[in-house]
Amino acid sequence: MSEITDEDRERVKLLHLITTSKNEFKNLSLDQLKRLQELVEKKDYSHDKKAHKSKVKLLGKINVRIYELTEGRGIWG
């Protein structure tokens, strides 16, 4: 069994912040979002098709929120 790393702990902590809130990503700062994006991208879920699909979906949501914070509220909002 693989050892739990500090990065694993940090990733779980950030994921916990977005899953325990109705506003999901709105509670995270830009730096936290970028760090979460980096940590999720590093994690390999190729052995589990469902987990990999969830990872891709989550990365899409993170990218949207980063775009909203850097470029303004969004195209339609």
Rank of each mutant, 00 (worst) to 15 (best):
W76P: 06
D6L: 10
D48N: 15
D44V: 08
Y67Q: 12
K50Y: 13
H16E: 13
T5P: 01
M1Y: 08
S29R: 01
R73C: 07
R35G: 03
T70M: 13
L39Q: 02
K26L: 08
M1P: 06
A51F: 09
G72I: 06
T5Q: 03
D31H: 02
V64K: 14
I75C: 08
E10C: 05
R9K: 15
K49T: 13
R73D: 15
L58G: 00
D8P: 01
V40M: 06
L14D: 01
N23T: 11
G60M: 02
L15F: 08
K49M: 12
I62T: 02
D31T: 05
E24F: 08
K34L: 08
I75T: 14
S29E: 05
S29P: 03
T19R: 12
L28W: 01
V12R: 06
L33A: 02
R11C: 09
I4C: 07
G74R: 03
N63A: 11
L15Q: 05
V56K: 10
I4L: 09
G77R: 12
K26H: 06
N27Q: 07
G74I: 07
T20C: 09
R9E: 11
T20H: 13
R65E: 15
R73M: 14
W76T: 10
R11I: 06
I18R: 11
D44G: 04
G72W: 03
L69P: 01
N23Y: 08
L14K: 01
S2W: 06
L39K: 02
G77W: 13
V12H: 10
L58K: 03
T5F: 06
E3L: 13
F25S: 00
K53F: 11
